[in-house]
Each structure stands twice: as C-alpha cells, then as structure tokens.
C-alpha cells in the first residue's frame, strides 16, 4: 500500500535577492504523524513554514500540502490547514464560544456544523462551563488549550504549530503535548517547531535545519543512536554548531 503523505516537499527553495533562506529541502510527512521541525534561529524554519502554509511562493522546487500545490493553489492549502503560534490567535475581548464561531465562519463552516462542533470541542477540552467566559479572563494554560482547539476547529488535515509551548509552566506544557497526541491519534497530522529539546523526543520524526538545508531527518531515537549521544539537545548542538550563518 502506498503511504499517504500530507506534506510532500521536493527541492523547495526560497531566495531573497542573493540570499538563499531555504535551500533545496526535500521531505515527506505522513498522515497522522507528529513531525518536529527544528533548527537554530535563522536556519530558515519560518521561511519554509510560510511556503508550506501558502503564504510565500517558492523560488524553486515543488510542494503539496493537504493534497494541494503550494504554488498554484495556495488558497486551497490555507483552507485545509490549521495554524497556531505562540502568540495565540484568540480575540481576548470575545467569549470562548464567540472565538470558535468566528473561526468557523472564516473557514466557511455552516452554522449547524459550527454549533455541533462547538459542543464537541468544548467537551473534549473540558471547558463546557467556560463557554461564556471572556478569553482575557482565562488562565494561560486554558488559552493555549483553546487556541489549539480553534486551530483544528474546521477539521484540517494538518495543523502547523509554531513554538506553541513558549512561556507556559512545565505541567501545562506537558498537558499540551497530550492534547497534541490526541489530535494525532484522531488522524490530524501535526507539524511543530520548538526550542525545547525534550519536546523533540515526543515527535515521531524530527528534521533539523542548518543554514537553509535539512541536515538530519529521522526518529529521535535513530538520531540519538546515529550521533552516539544520549539526548536530542546534544544532537541539536552538534549540528547547529556547523552553521556558518548567524542569527535570524
């Protein structure tokens, strides 16, 4: 049986003038996989992610995300992905249900579907009693939980998480990863960036970018074995030290 890929990138490249931010990266992400996208500041992660989300046109190479070509069909790509960044994209002065309503509407969901999904989502994140609470009154960990629920509210095939756990306490950070596991188990593919190397261990596979290229791509355990070290922090440091570029 052919494997089902939700992301396929082939020689994906982005140049700004004579600077090559992303340099011929090739990789696939399987359906339901948790894929960690690592790299030092300035390695080209954000640029690569913007191309995959249909926000930036590649200078060279091809990519499909959720079955759509990122160059020719960026609008279809956008409709079929979810996105969450550390700056949670929630409206602080809207209530919990209103945030879900808003994003459902933006993604063109029907009223009935929005109503049903709202009940299901609030139940699954255990926030039914907070339906009418203003987002600004929620504790940080709850906002994070809600932001993730919002990013997957329209049932995207894949969700992009850009440093989703920055700034939260260690217990909340771990609970958030359990939410990620839940989404992956239900078939949503998760593409995640992080600066916490312990979180790299929680991914099925990770790639590490150095100077615009993918220098390593495998399961955390295979990478640890390959480099003969005991944790991902060391793998990362060994690779990132090779970088000749500085900063982002």
């Amino acid at each position: 049986m052919k494997e089902e890929y939700v992301i396929q990138a082939e020689n994906l490249t982005k140049r700004f003038g004579d600077f090559t931010a992303v340099d011929h990266i090739t990789f696939n992400v399987r359906k339901g996989e948790i894929f960690g996208f690592l790299g030092a500041n300035g390695a080209g992660k954000t640029t690569a992610m913007r191309m995959l989300c249909g926000l930036s046109r590649p200078s060279e190479g091809k990519g499909t995300v959720a079955g759509f070509d990122i160059e020719c069909e960026p609008e279809k790509v956008k409709r079929n992905i979810g996105y969450m960044s550390q700056k949670f994209s929630l409206y602080e002065d809207l209530k919990v249900w209103e945030n879900l309503r808003l994003y459902g509407g933006i993604y063109g969901m029907k009223d009935k579907e929005i109503a049903e999904n709202t009940d299901a989502v609030l139940h699954s994140i255990d926030m039914e009693s907070e339906r009418d609470t203003m987002v600004c009154d929620l504790p940080l960990g709850w906002k994070q939980k809600l932001a993730f629920a919002v990013s997957t509210f329209h049932n995207p095939k894949i969700v992009f998480l850009d440093e989703p756990t920055g700034g939260v306490d260690p217990i909340t950070r771990r609970r958030f990863w359990e939410q990620i596991y839940g989404a992956a188990a239900s078939g949503i593919t998760v593409f995640v960036t992080t600066h916490y190397m312990d979180e790299a261990e929680y991914c099925d596979r990770v790639s590490i970018m150095v100077d615009g290229r993918i220098r390593a791509l495998d399961s955390p355990m295979a990478l640890r074995n390959k480099f003969g070290v005991s944790d991902m922090d060391e793998v990362f440091r060994m690779l990132a030290r090779e970088a000749t570029r500085k900063g982002d």
Binding site: G39, A40, N41, E163, H195, D233, F236, R237, A240, G247
Partner: peptide
C-alpha cells in the same frame, strides 16, 4: 533568552 535556540541560549 525566550524564543532563542538552545545553542544561542548557551
């Protein structure tokens, strides 16, 4: 060091 990669943090 918030949002800074592990090598630069070090």
């Amino acid at each position: 060091t918030t949002g800074v990669d592990p090598v630069s943090r070090k």
